[in-house]
Design a protein around this nucleic acid. Structure first.
Lengths: 235, 235
DNA sequence: ACGGATTTATAACTTGGTTATGCATACAGG
DNA sequence: CCTGTATGCATAACCAAGTTATAAATCCGT
């Protein structure tokens, strides 16, 4: 009854190869023939397992959200929920910076065959699943926001609404930075993202002093976790 | 065959047709053969005037920024710079809501042939011009931010940095809303965008009361200008 | 009016998604 | 074991769409 994949599951290997080639060679590497050759199969594998390239790309997009969600989950929770929000922001930004091609697809967007049409086009099954996975990633922001409210750092408010504001700000920065609008390199973090986080925290009820201290706490934690070798250090 | 009147400006007509077909039929309408037929020419026109589809699409992307910039310019300046920022936000969001397909291309993004690869891919001449046009649109936000600082509504700060924060928040909301993450309809404006604007204003130094009043002022001005609530209309 | 330069139409070439077809392999029931 | 059926898969073809080669047509400066 349960459909037993007879050999090593080609489906997962196709998605895996797609993600790898995507980051190595850009979206033009997302081709049925290339992927099939990569896993040692013929193009038919794409159609037996996905029905077409569009569905495979949607699966790649979903994988981006899954990866993002996993990264955010690793941030964990400390006693300073506002610092945790800064850490989530750094992590979100880092994920996109490390795999820009993947997240260009994930965020709606790259559409290697022009198949995933609009940003608001959720016609396919896989497309809806990807959006669902996006909300899963969003949950981490909601949780931290909720804790910030409970801790009295943020004004009492609907945590979903407040988190949606934070998500918008964060997502907007990351997207614009990835589009090159804030110049190259890491400077956007200190010049825009962190000040943006402080602005948001203060606007949501925190004091300037505590928000700045939480930003510093998160920065220190970030350095400790990633190691400061190779980082552009500037005060 | 009747002698053809010399086509005056095929280049502009191609871009115009591309934008129109894009909103009517989605990105799959952005095809050399379709566009050529639309303006009564052969596919060669695409190559003599643009060199290829990629450059034409970049030109469409640039047109989106130009349109956005024009819309934002129409907002004008009142005595309440914070209200002006809310008006700019509503306008920015409205532009994207009315032509989602166009701005999906403009924002980096739709890539009908998989040609415009990454969000950060600025390899082509037209691509750089499009980014430049984006900064032009950004200027309006900078100007309003500067006036808010001068008026004492925002704390003294670098107006570019503060404006970049506002742009990030606005762009993020618009992008996520267009992706369907905030549900359908207009509810995202009152539930997220306006509260986000208030959060940002307060975080940048304004008081809650004045920020809320500016939001109301902008809302009233918006209603006066658009008549009915901004439903998806067409020109 | 002439001659080079530019634009254009036609048609072929190329790439890449898709599909038709047949074989092979897994598994169920004898 | 043998056999029948279903499913995965390779081959090869099909088709759509970007691109290019070529030659005719048109434009413009002199």
């Amino acid at each position: 009854m349960s459909p037993k994949p007879r050999a090593t599951d080609v489906k997962a290997r196709l998605v895996e190869a797609a993600i790898r080639l995507l980051d190595e060679s850009g979206p033009e590497a997302l081709q049925a023939r290339k992927l099939a050759a990569e896993v040692g199969a013929s193009t038919m594998a794409v159609y037996t397992h996905f029905g077409g390239m569009a569905a495979l790309v949607d699966e790649v997009a979903r994988a981006g959200y899954v990866r993002l969600s996993e990264w955010l989950a690793e941030v964990g929770e400390t006693g300073d929920p506002v610092a945790d929000i800064f850490s989530l922001a750094r992590t979100y930004r880092q994920a996109v910076a490390e795999q820009p091609q993947l997240f260009a697809v994930t965020f709606g967007q790259s559409a290697p065959g022009g198949k995933r049409a609009t940003l608001s086009d959720l016609t396919t099954e896989e497309g809806r699943e990807a959006a669902q996975e996006g909300l899963e990633a969003f949950t981490h922001i909601v949780r931290a926001t909720e804790r910030a409210i409970e801790a009295g750092r943020f004004r009492a408010a609907d945590e979903y609404q407040a988190a949606a504001q934070l998500w918008s700000a964060l997502h907007g920065f990351v997207t614009l930075e990835a589009s090159g609008h804030f110049g190259p390199g890491e400077q956007g973090i200190d010049h825009i993202l962190i000040p943006l986080g402080i602005t948001m925290a203060v606007g949501l009820g925190d004091t300037v002093e505590r928000a700045e201290r939480s930003a510093e706490t998160a920065k220190a934690a970030w350095r400790a976790r990633t190691g400061n070798a190779g980082q552009v250090g500037n005060d």
